[in-house]
Design a protein around this nucleic acid. Sequence first.
RNA 1: GGGGCCGUAGCUCAAUUGGUUAGAGCAUCGGACUGUCGAUCCGAAGGUUGAGGGUUCGAGCCCCUUCGGCCUCGCCA
Length: 601
Amino acid sequence: MKRTHHCGQLRLEHVDEEVTLCGWVNSYRDHGNLVFIDLRDRSGLIQVVFDPEYNLESHRLARSLRCEWVIACRGKVRPRGQGLENPKLATGQIEVIVEQLDLLNTAKTPPFETDSADQVNEEIRLSYRYIDLRRKSMQNRLKVRHQVTKITRDYFDEQGFWEIETPMLGKSTPEGARDFLVPSRLYKGNFYALPQSPQLFKQILMVSGCERYFQIVRCFRDEDPRADRQAEFTQIDVEMSFVDADDVMTVNERLIARIFKKILGVEVPLPVPRMTYAQAMDEYGIDRPDLRFDMKLKDLSDLVKDSSFKVFTSVVEKGGVVKGFCAPGGGRYSRSDIEKTMTEFVADFGARGLAWFKVGAAEGGGGLELKSSIAKFFTPSQQQQILSRFNAAEDDLILMVADQVETANKALAPLRVRLGKELGLVREGDYRFIWVIDFPLFEWNEGDKRFDSLHHPFTSPVPEDLEKLDTDPGHIRSQAYDLVVNGSEIGGGSVRIHNPLTQAKVFDLLKITRQQARDRFGFFLKALEYGAPPHGGIAFGLDRLVMLLTGTDNIRDVIAFPKTQRGQCLLTDAPSEVDASQLEELNLRVQKHLHQLEQEP
RNA sequence: GGGGCCGUAGCUCAAUUGGUUAGAGCAUCGGACUGUCGAUCCGAAGGUUGAGGGUUCGAGCCCCUUCGGCCUCGCCA
């Protein structure tokens, strides 16, 4: 029997047609004489009916069917009787009365019920991923992921980009994340590294005259995973020649707008607005601000430095800041919420404390005042200034961290997001895009007494700051840009250095010696000397993009076969030990840890 | 490397201060049933409480070790 239709397609217009369907038994309801099966394929569910008066043999076979068995059936589409429609199914107006049933395969009882798998332990879902992926929600995520890559390929093709593959087996460099290493059989003792990104190859493709490159490419970073991070992930990687930062942002924001339009029907207003890194850090404490709600951070240092609250004054004297934000309606939080839950929360990010004021009606009537165990350290005038800086209203909650500005930001930014969500300031289906620009080129690494690249060492300074390479490297702005939506960085890139002299100066500041630079990037620096065009690009995290589009905060949900937080694949049991002969061939010996040796007889 | 939460039947969860034979719903198996759609009804089976050790007259519960999962800090140019 050849399939003629998909289960989820059938509608009233197909009534009286003879159809053949294939799929899995989603559920069965056996009434002794009448048997109902909800048949499932990728397209959806449909009810098929077995009636002994219609076909005795099929009915007998149908009674033995079980969940997840695979069948094909041929029958006639008919409308359901009056009052028998099922509004829960897209196909609920009709059903198929089956003439012929073929059992294509049986199935063991699944380890979990597919209908309720959302509540099932993820460990079991990952071990039986093929069953987990049968679920509609998971199939939708795979489908959206496919749609995103399809839209991306179509879009870049229209724009004159070529998709070019770059090597998976590359050269290890000690910068950046830890590499995954692959031993070479032919060069014993030598290793390839899996790419952390195709950065240098795509720049070399610009030197090669390809002009417009993109690639949907797997990248590997051997660092500890997070809910939104996996050692193996996918980038939409882009590079363009003869462009400035504006050109790259324009081309790429149009791609993202098209993806959101086609998949969610969401109109992304173009051009996407821009915000400097300095403003983002100042007002949101983070370089990826969530703009779905206001609740901006304010610096109160100037107002509180003259208070009698020693904690604040001493921090300001030491060059720190008192920064905070005002949570509208936050008065409903209890003292224990603030002094325990929230304080522990910010402590995780290095803050030593969390100060707070509740905003209440002033005693004696008229106006507002601050209510808190520390309110007494602030004069009425100081209190009023604080209230007016936040434009605070009754029942608001003001939360503050006093520390070095980096620490204060680091603690306040996640607290702001957490409260924004808890207080219901985030509207479902709201997407706020922003380009964050004018990043610093370097940040000072006090431990190693040198500069580190904020983006990567090939990022170009903005032209007017070029001279500061010699005079004031700490204040150079880079031509880097991150695309941020709802507090999540979905992509980032830069205009690159195409001048070998500038590149050499940057390496100097990073304390990468000429010798080291030659060893690690010699092939690339050499390429720059052979007519490198001005170029720039960007890379988007495909996984995070699909997470946004499908409304999950778990990266494993958008990867067909993901790994656990310890980097294990529970389906295949990778990684695993290998045969001694394989090691032999690679000239490798595994050194066991002492505790393992002790356990052996 | 650090911190937190979790692990009891196939799945989701209960189990009083440490106290009888570790329960329930769903799933499974058997039976009944002609319009169900999370079918219903009757019945049955199902457990090394992640593993190992300890304390105790007695441990799912307390202690130690260990394995695994998730979240997180560090890390992720």
